[in-house]
Computed example of a mutant assay.
Amino acid sequence: MNIELVKKFKDALAMELKEADRVPAELSSFPFGSCEETSKMLALYLSDNDISDVVYTRNNTISEMSGSGVHYWVVVDGTWVIDLTAHQFDECDDDFIVSQSSDFHSNYELESAHIADINDLDGFGSNDISKFYKKLTIRLKNT
């Protein structure tokens, strides 16, 4: 797993969120409520950079947590958990997680896994996320 590639994405995402003229509503309170779109973009970026067996996953809590419900993250090679938004929850102190074993993620069970596709970034007739992602990838190429 290329942890440096994940860090590069995370840092570029933080800069784009800070400097963008317009941030899509789904990302405006990052990390809160932005796990699905962030995971889709990260999975797409990793796949586009020759990381194989990348999916973004939808997961449901199986324990009592402050943010119980659905949470998304990326899985690589069926073993690496990559979560750039886990720090929205009280139970997670890490800024981001790249791990093959995570106590935080053991509180969830997998509901579904999806291969990232640029066409999945936008829903409900909006293309805000794909526009944001394109600007993000330009930033990534320039770093």
Rank of each mutant, 00 (worst) to 15 (best):
M1P: 12
N2D: 08
N2H: 02
I3R: 08
L5F: 06
L5N: 09
L5D: 03
K7H: 06
D11N: 09
A14K: 02
A14R: 01
M15H: 11
M15N: 12
E16A: 07
A20N: 06
A20F: 00
D21H: 10
R22Q: 07
V23A: 05
A25L: 14
A25C: 09
A25F: 08
E26T: 10
L27C: 04
F32Y: 05
F32H: 06
F32V: 11
T38E: 00
K40I: 06
M41D: 09
L42C: 13
L42M: 07
A43E: 01
Y45V: 11
L46T: 10
S47W: 00
N49V: 05
I51N: 06
I51L: 10
D53I: 00
V55W: 06
Y56C: 12
N60M: 04
N60A: 05
M65I: 08
M65K: 07
G67H: 00
G67A: 02
Y72F: 05
W73D: 09
V74L: 02
V74Q: 01
V75L: 03
V76N: 01
G78H: 06
W80I: 11
W80K: 04
D83C: 02
L84V: 14
L84K: 12
A86V: 04
A86I: 04
H87M: 13
H87K: 09
D90V: 08
D90T: 08
D90A: 06
E91W: 01
E91F: 02
E91P: 00
D93N: 14
D95G: 13
F96G: 15
F96M: 15
V98R: 06
S99H: 01
Q100V: 10
S102A: 07
D103S: 14
D103H: 10
F104E: 12
L110H: 04
E111V: 12
A113K: 01
H114G: 11
I115E: 07
I118C: 13
I118H: 09
N119D: 02
L121T: 10
G125R: 03
S126D: 15
N127K: 14
K131A: 10
F132N: 01
Y133A: 07
K134W: 00
T137R: 01
T137V: 12
T137L: 08
T137D: 13
I138Q: 08
R139D: 15
R139K: 09
R139L: 15
K141T: 14
K141I: 15
N142A: 13
N142F: 14
N142E: 15
N142G: 06
T143F: 08
